[in-house]
């Protein structure tokens, strides 16, 4: 059962899987902004703005 929270940018509903681990990325379906899961506790989720995905040279 996903946990629903509000996008801090545009106020849209964001669904977070209830088994998400800290550090997983979720994005707002309306504005596309990406958040990182900080913690899930008692059916509530804390999000923070996601840091950029890393880059790696090569292959």
């Amino acid at each position: 059962m996903p946990i629903v929270t509000k996008c801090k940018e545009c106020g849209a509903d964001i669904e977070v899987p209830d088994d998400a681990l800290p550090g997983e990325i979720v994005s707002c379906p309306d504005c596309g902004i990406e958040y990182e899961v900080v913690k899930i506790e008692n059916g509530k989720v804390d999000l923070k703005l996601a840091e950029n995905v890393g880059e790696d040279w090569g292959e």
Partner: peptide
């Protein structure tokens, strides 16, 4: 925690 990377 794992890290996602984008390859060039």
């Amino acid at each position: 925690h794992g890290r996602f990377v984008k390859k060039l």
